[in-house]
Amino acid sequence: MPTVKVDNLYFRYPNGPDVFGGVSFEVGKGDSLVVLGPNGSGKTTLLKALLGLETPYEGGISLFDTPVARFSDWGRVGYLPQNTRLLNPHFPATALEVAALGLLGGKKFPRRFTRGDMDKAAAALDRVGLASRADRIYSELSGGQQQRVLLARLLVGEPELILLDEPSSALDNESRAMFFSILDAINAAGKTTVLWITHDMGEAGRHASKLLYLDGKMRFFGDMEGFCHSSEMGAVLGPYTQHTVCHRHDGAPK
């Protein structure tokens, strides 16, 4: 059973042209799929469609074998948004309270947090190196620390599917290394599917097992080896960019 199945997806905003069309792919347990493409190619829209936040006009999306429109088991899905500017900048919650919100999707009405839930949130903050900041107000933390709190919010529910929209764009090098070491560890256990968007080609090559290139239509979907040997992608991206994704400086086999 694929974790995510996308079948011939077409999307457009009201009164606008198609953002993308003809997108089909499947990812399963343990896959790490990176979505690449230029600005405006529909990467974030695709991610939001997977989350049921946007509705395509044609095609189907299934999460865990259930059409997304009928999917209700959101505790199995973790999401890290790209644009934290949409968050309330004056929200008075502590880092611990924000991290605990990651458990909301797995709760039934009326949703309550137990002491055990708060312990899980504290453990998630510890995992992202912010145990000492648990009682600090979220909005008073630095941008990088806020992003790590949101990562803790994502991790706390131990989701089986993780969706990330440019997750490292606000992080410094140290935080970025920590971020991907956590993500790689989760992914290496083989139980979690990760689907993420980035503009960092090197990052994509280092941490993804599959690649989807979106450019109004789906230009490529497959494993890294297929991407690295794709003459079409070489023509689209140019040999230097393709090399940036495929070449490893750490000596690891590609």
Binding site: L51, G52, L53, V77, Y79, P81, L87, F91, R153
Partner: peptide, 12 residues
């Protein structure tokens, strides 16, 4: 109040 989009993802 904090993150409307995330609330929707949580099924709120």
């Amino acid at each position: 109040c904090f993150d409307q989009e995330y609330a929707r993802v949580c099924g709120v």
